[in-house]
């Protein structure tokens, strides 16, 4: 199995490590990986050690997609492209906040890269700050629950939709809790020429506050409550939507994590949960999950 070498500094139960392993399993040895700054980068490359066994490069926080474009261009120019896949693996903040410009440019240009976003819904490496991917109602250190706050007041930025709008031939959502799904989708993405995107939901034991053993379990609840829809968009057309049978109420997902705990204890928390349920209901309708 292609994966990260052990000995990395990821937390016990780390979602980024799992995500990287599944991507490596999907792409194999003939790949060059680009990572932005973040948990994955920091925990795998403390000089003079590295967990990566494929060629790997880290430059800065906001430019993984641009660096990947450069690698792709260099391989083409020097006639060394062959079947080598250029894959960027980065976190939500690095991808859809600070890195938004670079990924937009790469996708608009049609560069032959696959970008996998490992979405643990906050800037985890710097200590769990809110990002554009933080879901409605989540408590982070810069959107904390408090006497006058129910946590993050904004919904998740819909990054897959942004890249579909760039005419990407393949955009997919997946979850590290469904490794075979993720491996299949990443493999499909790298085999399609042009800029492709896989957005992987990644429950973070440290940031979301749940026991280290529950990483996969929490991720499944996200899917089973329809808060995390799993689908593919091929040339802009929705396909392979993962239906949700016996949909669970969002409370089941929310109560599994400390970052939503305040919704169950505060006055008015119930109304917030109703709003979150509405998000799930909207997903069901919009993506045809039932």
């Amino acid at each position: 199995m292609s994966r990260l070498a052990p000995g990395h500094r990821g937390c016990a139960g780390c979602c980024d490590a799992m995500a990287a392993n599944f991507v490596l399993e999907a792409v194999g040895d003939d790949a060059i990986v680009v990572s932005p700054t973040g948990c994955l980068e920091v925990m795998t490359t403390p000089y003079p050690e590295s967990s990566w066994e494929v060629p790997w490069i880290h430059s800065l926080f906001e430019n993984a997609a641009a660096v990947a474009s450069g690698v792709d261009a260099a391989l083409k120019a020097m006639g060394r492209k062959g079947n080598t896949k250029v894959v960027a693996i980065g976190g939500d903040g690095a991808t859809l906040d600070i890195g938004l410009q670079a990924i937009s440019g790469a996708f608009e240009r049609g560069d032959d890269i696959t970008y996998v976003c490992v979405d643990n819904e906050a800037y985890m490496n710097t200590g769990v700050q809110r990002s554009g991917a933080t879901p409605y109602g989540a408590s982070t250190t810069t959107s904390p629950a408090g006497k006058q706050s129910f946590g993050n007041p904004r919904p998740k930025k819909n990054m897959p939709a942004i890249l579909v709008a760039h005419d990407s031939p393949y955009v997919a959502t997946t979850s590290i809790s469904y490794p075979k799904d993720m491996i299949r989708k990443v493999k499909k993405a790298v085999d399609i020429e042009g800029p492709t995107y896989v957005h992987a939901h990644a429950p973070c034991t440290t940031g979301w506050k749940f026991d280290t053993s529950k990483t996969v379990e929490v991720g499944k609840l996200a899917v089973e409550t329809a808060l995390w829809p799993m689908y593919e968009m091929e040339n802009g057309e929705l396909s392979n939507v993962r239906k949700v049978k016996n949909r669970k109420p969002v409370e089941d997902y929310l109560k599994s994590q400390g970052r939503f705990k305040h919704l169950f204890t505060m006055d008015g928390g119930k109304d917030e949960i109703t709003k979150i349920q509405a998000i799930a209901d909207w997903n069901v309708k919009h993506y045809g999950l039932e």
Partner: peptide
């Protein structure tokens, strides 16, 4: 590469130069 800003102009060259 027609990049979308100078930041990406030089960043793309990081990747390209590292690739040889």
């Amino acid at each position: 590469i027609n990049v979308e800003s100078e930041f990406s102009a030089i960043s793309a060259l990081v990747g390209a130069s590292a690739a040889g």
